[in-house]
Computed example of a mutant assay.
Amino acid sequence: MNDIGAQADGALGAFCLDTTITGGFDTFLRGWQTQVGDDFPQPTYSPATIRDFRMKTRVAKVRDVAIVDVHGVSAAETAGTPGGVEDQVRLYVMRRGAWTLSDPRDRGEHTISAGQFLLRYVGRPAHFTTVPQTTAKILVLPAATLKPLLGNRIITGPVGAAEVRLLVAHATMVHAAMADLSPVGVQAVHSTLIELAKAVARRRFDDVEPQLAPAIVQAAKDLAGSLLADPELSPAILARELNVSVRTLQRAFAAVGESVTAYIRHRRLEEARLALTAPHGEPRVSVSELAAHWQFADSSHFTRAFKKRYGQTPTEYARSIRPARD
């Protein structure tokens, strides 16, 4: 378990736990209660789940919002008769596996499969089950600001929806920044989480809202990272996938002191540099192969860009690290 920034006023709390390596259900439950608290109580689990609880969990609490990343190696299932009131909105973003939710209002079930999301208001506790190897990001959100937008609707769709991409990107940034957040920072990230959750409920977001610029940038970076070797990668492609204008995307990057084109070029150069550090015994790629793979016009253009970035040509860089590597 790793406490990474709980504040005395309870505004923040976080922990990471891998029960496939150490501990078990009891360790998980103690960590959750200590670092996340009673505002986000855990349900009652089935005896089979408790007996074989193999899960990797990362949780960040920001005031009345909880961000939960979970990879369940084993299956999980709740048990007993749920009681009480939860009065929360939950967003499930499924990366792998499946998560099935019961609905006490209509006694039906909703299964969220890999590549899909589900957003709904939860008034009363309900059962859920997951299959082994399920990976998901779950956001628990305050009902006061989101229930009026949702009512009894259950909103579903692909995780690639622009507003979901932005919310997931921002939530991931929150995890990374937890330890360094000031009270003003807590307010900023919390407000953005709520605004982006509203955007998911509305299925659209205000792309000129300055508060959303960091989330737009991070979502664009995440998307660019999966497309770096694609010759079609460009600001226009990223803007289209995020459902914003190119101008909005460029303005968002400018707000954090970058440009879209420069970011793509720097990431490609970094990947090329890493390729030059291949361990001894692995085949080494040539400068011309690197230039072609990372979409530089030719070897000369790649070499000039590499030297400007790292102070050495690719050949000089590879030679300089070879003695230490070999």
Rank of each mutant, 00 (worst) to 15 (best):
H175P: 00
S74E: 07
V164A: 06
D222M: 15
Q133C: 15
T277K: 14
S46T: 01
R90F: 06
K307Q: 05
E316R: 15
D38I: 09
T248I: 13
P235E: 02
A305M: 06
T277F: 04
D207Y: 13
A324Y: 12
W32C: 01
C16P: 05
Y121W: 01
E109K: 05
P142K: 02
L17T: 00
A197V: 09
T156Q: 04
R203H: 14
A255I: 08
T49E: 01
T134E: 02
E241K: 10
R265A: 12
L146V: 06
S245N: 04
R105P: 07
T303V: 01
S113D: 10
F306T: 11
D64V: 09
T27P: 10
K307V: 03
L181D: 08
W294P: 10
Y92H: 14
A76D: 12
I138E: 07
P104I: 05
T313H: 02
W294M: 07
R202V: 09
Y45T: 05
L167T: 13
Q35D: 14
V70F: 11
L274D: 15
V89K: 06
S74Q: 10
D38A: 01
T81G: 01
A272F: 09
A201P: 04
P235G: 06
D180Q: 09
P125C: 06
L269A: 04
H293D: 11
V122A: 01
V62N: 11
Y263F: 05
V85W: 04
D103W: 00
L167Y: 12
M1I: 15
Y121D: 02
V89F: 05
V186Y: 09
D87N: 14
L181C: 14
P214N: 08
S113K: 13
V256T: 04
L141I: 11
M173C: 09
L269K: 09
S320N: 10
G108V: 07
V260A: 11
F296V: 00
G13A: 07
E282G: 03
A143M: 08
R96M: 15
G108D: 07
A278V: 04
R284I: 12
S245L: 12
V208G: 14
V164G: 08
L139Y: 02
R54W: 06
A215T: 10
E109I: 00
G123V: 04
S182E: 03
R268I: 06
E163I: 00
T192G: 08
N2K: 05
R240F: 15
F296P: 01
A162R: 02
V189N: 07
P183N: 09
A161H: 15
G24C: 12
A161W: 10
I155H: 02
Q42M: 14
A6Q: 08
Y121C: 02
A213V: 06
H127T: 05
H280Y: 09
I50G: 11
V68K: 04
F205R: 08
S259E: 15
D180A: 11
V70D: 09
G31L: 02
V68C: 10
A75V: 02
V65K: 01
S182W: 03
V73P: 05
